[in-house]
C-alpha cells in the first residue's frame, strides 16, 4: 500500500474505531442500571463487543500510521473535534433536547439506536470482509458476527416495544422520530475515507442505503411503527463537527487515563 493510501485507510479505520468506542461507552452507561438484570448483561455484552472492535481497529490505525501512537493514545488523548464518530452514537439515551440527569434515560432510544446502527454495520462489515487490506478484512469478518447478534437483540425489542403497550409504542415511535435524521450521515464519508474505500476495492457506503432502508422498513412495519419522513438536519460528526454531547462523553471516558498517563492496572 502506498503511503498516501495507508494514510487514507487509517482515516477510514479511525472513523470505524471511533464509532465503536463511542457507542460502547454509551451502551455501557446501562451497566448496573438496566431495566432488568438480563438486559443489563445484554447491553454490557454489546458494549464489550464494540470495545473489542474498537481496540482492534485502533491498533490497526497505529500500525498503518507508524507514528508511535497506540490504542490508548488514540482513545484517551484526542479531543472532540478529532473524533470522527457519527453524531448518532454520541447522543444521550433520551429524546429530550437537553436531558439533565441519568434518570432521564429512555431504553427505547438505546434500542432504536442499536437497531438503526447495527443493521448498517452488518452491511458495512459484509462489504469490508472483501477489502484488500487483510487485517481490516479479518476484523470485519469477526465483527460481522457480533453485529448480527446486535441486530437480533435490538430488532426483537423494537418489535416488542412497537407492538406492545400504548406507552411502549409511543416511546419507540418518539425514539425513531428523534434518531432517524441522524442516520443520513451513514451515507456520507470524508474525502480521505471515500478514497480509502476505493483503494481497498470496496464500494462507497452510499451503495448500502437501499438494503439498509428495506431491512429497517420491514422491521418498523412489523413493530406497527411509522417511518418518519426523510430530511432534517444532516449531522457532521464523521468530519469532526459534533453535538455538545460528545465532550461530556469524552470527559467521563478520558479523565482517568489523563489523570494517570501511562498508568497500568
Amino acid at each position: 500500500m502506498s503511503a498516501v493510501a495507508a494514510q487514507e485507510v487509517s482515516d477510514l479505520v479511525l472513523h470505524l474505531a471511533d464509532n465503536a468506542l463511542i457507542l460502547a461507552q454509551r451502551n455501557a452507561e446501562w451497566c448496573g442500571h438496566g431495566p432488568i438484570l438480563e438486559e443489563d448483561l445484554a447491553l454490557a455484552n454489546n458494549a464489550l463487543d464494540l470495545m473489542g472492535q474498537a481496540r482492534l481497529l485502533y491498533q490497526h490505525v497505529a500500525a498503518l500510521r507508524q507514528d508511535g501512537s497506540d490504542e490508548d493514545r488514540l482513545a484517551y488523548f484526542r479531543d472532540a473535534h478529532e473524533f470522527k464518530n457519527h453524531t448518532l452514537l454520541e447522543l444521550p439515551h433520551s429524546t429530550a433536547l437537553a436531558p439533565t440527569a441519568s434518570g432521564d434515560r429512555d431504553y427505547a432510544v438505546t434500542i432504536v439506536r442499536n437497531f438503526l446502527y447495527s443493521i448498517f454495520m452488518v452491511l458495512v462489515w459484509d462489504a469490508l470482509q472483501h477489502a484488500t487490506d487483510a487485517q481490516l478484512a479479518a476484523i470485519a469478518s469477526k465483527s460481522r458476527k457480533e453485529a448480527l447478534y446486535h441486530v437480533q437483540h435490538a430488532q426483537d425489542w423494537l418489535i416488542r416495544f412497537g407492538d406492545g403497550t400504548a406507552e411502549s409504542h409511543h416511546k419507540a415511535q418518539a425514539a425513531l422520530n428523534h434518531l432517524m435524521p441522524y442516520t443520513q450521515a451513514f451515507w456520507l464519508l470524508g474525502e480521505a475515507e471515500a478514497a480509502a474505500l476505493q483503494a481497498l476495492g470496496v464500494a462507497h457506503f452510499s451503495s448500502l442505503q437501499s438494503a439498509w432502508q428495506a431491512q429497517v422498513a420491514s422491521a418498523v412495519s412489523e413493530a406497527t411503527l411509522t417511518l418518519p419522513a426523510d430530511g432534517g438536519h444532516v449531522p457532521q460528526g464523521h468530519v469532526g463537527v459534533h453535538s455538545e454531547h460528545l465532550g461530556f462523553v469524552l470527559a467521563e471516558m478520558q479523565s482517568l487515563a489523563r489523570a494517570h498517563p501511562d498508568g497500568m492496572w
Partner: peptide, 20 residues
C-alpha cells in the same frame, strides 16, 4: 432460570446471561 415474556425472548436472555 429467568423471567421472560415468551420462549424466543427467554432464549435471547439465556444467551446473554448464561453463555457469556
Amino acid at each position: 432460570s429467568l423471567h421472560a415474556a415468551d420462549a424466543q425472548q427467554a432464549l435471547h436472555m439465556a444467551r446473554d446471561v448464561y453463555t457469556r
